[in-house]
Design a protein around this nucleic acid. Structure first.
Length: 275
DNA sequence: AAGCGGTCCTGTGTGC
DNA sequence: TGCACACAGGACCGCT
């Protein structure tokens, strides 16, 4: 699933329903999901009996603060979901279940099992990888910082947007393509050749695309669901992602697809020219 | 520094 | 219909 808009949508929902709830019990069906600490007994000890005191987002991670002192962090990777339910029947692909003190459960489900959970003392966890190296949030960064980060790095724009520690954090494959289409920048454009105007347009497009996606509760291409099971809507208004051979909304040229570091990259060969 | 290919997994769609 | 293969919202790792 999930990039910043999907993670933020999930976070907002959880914040509404999970705050001040206590975790009574944890069920672990697939231990490899637990990345930190390395044994699941310790994981259960950290989490069990704790109250959820804050819920935040850091890049594509959801952070749940427990008793003001510990953190439970979740990365959904490609197909992970956090579902909030009071259903007694276990859904397929449920790997971790947190039983709460209000007859509800927080369920981590994930078809491909790439998602990961972390738990530990707050300060220590945030000082450890991968949290330590995350770039500023794509929705919060100011222009000066954005500019200086781009100017101090090299590489191609698409890969750079996907790299969570390079310029900003939160952008993934769908929104990188959407952002580049809106700014008319070719995905293989080098950072060093970006003009000041292009950099300014880029930041505006990042904020506009992510904010619009957020308003639409993210994109559901296949598996992303909000914690109540509902789909997002941004896929309906996307401009390029997964529109191979369809006409560009600006110029009618057929959308092309290429591979960039193994990821499908959609762009308009007419609007998005490389400099 | 940056860029690859491989890896972790399961499900779905396509073409023969 | 059956089967093989490519591909999917992410991100490490090891190598060049």
């Amino acid at each position: 699933m999930p990039e910043l808009p999907e993670v933020e949508t999930t976070k907002k929902y959880l914040k509404k329903y999970l705050l001040n709830k206590k975790i009574n019990k944890v069920w672990i069906g697939y231990p490899k999901i637990i990345k930190e600490p390395d044994n699941i007994k310790q994981f259960k000890e950290i989490v069990r009996g704790k109250k959820i005191t804050h819920i935040n987002r850091l890049g594509k991670y959801i952070l749940m603060e427990l008793n003001h002192k510990y953190l439970l962090a979740v990365h959904l990777k490609m197909t992970g979901n956090l579902l909030y339910t009071n259903s007694k029947t276990k859904q397929p692909h449920s790997h971790i279940i947190f039983y709460l003190n209000n007859k509800h459960q927080l369920v981590f489900s994930d078809i491909r099992k790439f998602g990961r959970l972390y738990a530990g003392p707050k300060k220590e966890l945030l000082k450890s990888l991968p949290f330590l190296t995350l770039a500023p949030d794509a929705l919060k960064i100011k222009f000066d910082k954005f500019l200086s980060r781009i100017k101090s790095k090299r590489g191609k724009i698409k890969q750079s947007l996907l790299n969570q520690s390079k310029i900003v954090s939160g952008i993934g494959n769908i929104y990188a393509d959407e952002i580049l289409w809106h700014t008319k920048i070719h995905p293989l454009q080098s950072l060093e050749n970006l003009s000041l105007t292009q950099i300014s347009n880029l930041l505006n497009a990042i904020k506009m695309v992510l904010t619009t996606a957020l308003k639409n509760k993210g994109s559901t291409i296949q598996t992303y669901r909000q914690p109540d099971g509902q789909s997002g809507n941004y896929q309906r208004i996307r401009k390029v992602y997964a529109r191979y051979d369809l006409p560009c909304f600006r110029c009618n040229t057929k959308i092309k697809v290429i591979k960039i570091s193994g990821r499908s990259t959609y762009y308009c060969p007419q609007c998005q020219k490389k400099i």
